[in-house]
Amino acid sequence: MGPTAAPADGYAAHLAAGRVLYPGIRLGRPGRARSYWLVIALMRALRLRWRVDVEGAENVAPGAAVLVGNHVSALDPVVLVISAWWRVTAFTKLEVFQGRGAAFFRLMGQIPLRRGDAAATDWAIGMAALALADGGMVGLYPEGTRSPDPTKLHRLHGRVLLPVLQGSPDVPVHAVTTRYTRRPGRRPLVQVRVSPPLPIDARTMAADEIVAVLRDTLLALGGQTYVDRSAREAKAERRPEPPA
């Protein structure tokens, strides 16, 4: 593991450090929530509302894996796990743990992340390393926020992505894309595509090479077009200007 990764036997101490970072915020047990499988079992009822088509789940061997996805909906992590029955721990912006849906993310054992805070980022990366050491899967969405245009893939950021891969370089990495199609009079179609393990060697490859492999695979799987700018910038442009 890299310098930011928490030791595999230090979960309790690492969780305690998170409570110091986030005083007054209930964190649950990221990566180890005992309620995870019950929540997934209950959420499988959502398949009555959507038609979920997963292709490539057989490419993922049992055990630890990093799943790197495009991000077009808040439902992206959900539609995969309710179909594949995997334990996936994803990074979640801290604001969610302070809002009305906080209980859901605690029950799912997701990792809170305060954006723009170096100490919080290191803590979250260490928690992801622990989840991988437990044999779980970690979901990453390096666009940083949901794309304002589902046909576009925006610039991938390495701030969290690269340390996670470099900290657990022997864990296989897969690209995952999700696409939603509304069909009048029929259930919406959700298409999830999962790649085979990618040719990524985080020990020897430069950061831009790793990002390029992921970008090109996501584009090929998801059928999106690439925009070399952040999704956050694109969202900001779409917001109406405040009145003068």
Rank of each mutant, 00 (worst) to 15 (best):
T204L: 13
P172R: 14
V190C: 09
T177R: 12
L156N: 03
E143Y: 06
T204R: 14
K152M: 09
P148N: 01
P148T: 02
V192P: 12
R182N: 14
V164Y: 05
R187A: 13
D134C: 04
P148Y: 00
V176P: 05
I200Y: 02
S195Y: 06
Q166A: 15
A131R: 11
L161S: 07
A124D: 05
A128T: 08
M127V: 15
R159L: 06
V192H: 09
P172H: 09
P169R: 14
M137K: 15
D170M: 04
L162Q: 03
R193S: 08
S147M: 01
T177I: 12
V194P: 13
S147K: 04
S147T: 09
R187N: 08
Y180W: 15
V176L: 09
A131C: 10
H157F: 00
R187K: 15
P163K: 14
Y180A: 05
L161I: 11
D122V: 13
P142G: 01
L165F: 13
T178M: 13
T151I: 01
A128E: 05
G126R: 09
T178D: 02
M127T: 15
Q166R: 15
A128D: 04
G158M: 00
V173L: 04
G158T: 01
T177W: 14
L140G: 05
V173C: 03
G136V: 02
V173G: 02
L161M: 10
K152F: 00
P199D: 01
R203T: 11
M205P: 07
V164P: 08
G144C: 06
P169Q: 12
T178L: 12
T204C: 07
L162C: 05
R182M: 14
P150L: 03
W123P: 07
G126I: 09
G126V: 05
L198M: 08
G144Y: 03
L130C: 04
G144K: 03
P184T: 11
P197M: 06
P184A: 12
P188Y: 15
P196Y: 05
P163V: 08
A133K: 07
V160D: 00
H154M: 00
R159N: 12
V192Y: 11
R155A: 14
T145V: 02
